[in-house]
Write a protein that binds this DNA or RNA. Structure first.
Lengths: 186, 186
DNA sequence: GAGCAATCTTGTCACTGGCAAGATTGCGCG
DNA sequence: CGCGCAATCTTGCCAGTGACAAGATTGCTC
């Protein structure tokens, strides 16, 4: 597979998505170009359009993939909220390109059914972690706790990716995240 | 001022920055075009280059402006960490365009001296709020607390702007932020 | 093996960023 | 006062991009 010879590429859709991740990871969202991806895959400049329609379509596919990956990794973290938070940050760092697309809905089609489904799977995974906390009882408290946990993990991940954090936090995102997330008082 | 007549615009730099904020606010970062800004200001397509060099230069100016504004608004929140957090979120919502540029350093010149200075002013304002907390004593604790506070406020703001939060949080960002930030246990 | 749908190509257009060269204007300095 | 200079803005250009249309090629199905 991934045979690029002949008129038909064979696995173009997958190849384009992979190339897109590379580009975003290395040169940022703004550097993403359908024509560049086509060149990398060895196809004509208009080939990507067939699989994704347009640039937003490509990013929709990336975001969907990302939410599915996130749901998986959150679930793998088990029933520990702190571990889930660390997993969230870790996901953002290891899948930077995915993460940066996922939370920029103006770049893709946020009303895509597949995307919505994937996002809900990730959301459900997060919520199920929070539900394991000894709750105050009222569902409103669980909501608030979930929001707080999500916010602090998301904020830390975002600041880390933006390079906005001071050097003294070190270079291990998991360790640094754990120290900060603990502050929430799980 | 803001007289657009004649060969010389008179206040082009300011006009371009204002137009850029409008565009970003309404149509997102990707819609930002120097030529469009030039048209809005009634000047030729190459006029913006003189003031900002290139697109990154324009965004550097926006980010600098943003950090200065943020420093101001944080300082105005007084010596209350919760109030500062709410002010942070409020800033992000009211100055969405600024905020969205500030934390995307790949879009501007992060090594610009004016920008660095402005960012440090904002950073100092945040740190001074955290320092008012009854600290555990060790400076490492203050660092960790500052990071946690920044993360939760930044995360909530980011998720709010991305439209990622469930509807039940309501439509008042200040109120919603207060409920979540309180969870940090100030 | 014939037709059909999926896949990919070629060609084109409007738009963009950036550069170079030149026009216009205001301002300081003699 | 007026001269020159620097700041400001314009015109012209080129390569790259996204999107669309029309056509070529291929593999699959019946």
């Amino acid at each position: 597979m991934t045979d690029t010879r002949g008129y038909h590429h064979g696995d173009l859709r997958r190849a384009l998505l992979a190339a897109a991740l590379d580009v975003i990871e290395e040169d940022g969202q703004a550097a993403l170009s359908l024509r560049d991806l086509a060149r990398r895959a060895g196809v004509s400049h208009a080939a990507p359009a067939h699989h994704f329609g347009d640039k937003a379509g490509l990013r929709t596919a990336l975001a969907t993939q990302g939410f599915d990956l996130l749901a998986q990794e959150l679930a793998a973290a088990g029933d520990d909220l702190l571990a889930a938070g660390v997993a969230y940050v870790d996901f953002a760092v290891r899948h930077r390109a995915h993460f940066e697309v996922m939370f920029r809905p103006e770049l893709y089609r946020a009303d895509d059914p597949d995307l919505i489904a994937a996002r809900q799977r990730a959301s459900a995974a997060l919520r199920s972690q929070v539900a394991t906390l000894p709750s105050g009882g009222a569902p409103a408290d669980t909501d608030r706790d979930a929001l707080a946990a999500w916010s602090i993990a998301h904020g830390f991940a975002t600041l880390w990716l933006a390079g906005a954090l001071p050097e003294r936090v070190g270079d291990d995102p998991r360790e640094a995240a754990r120290a900060v997330l603990r502050r929430l008082g799980t």
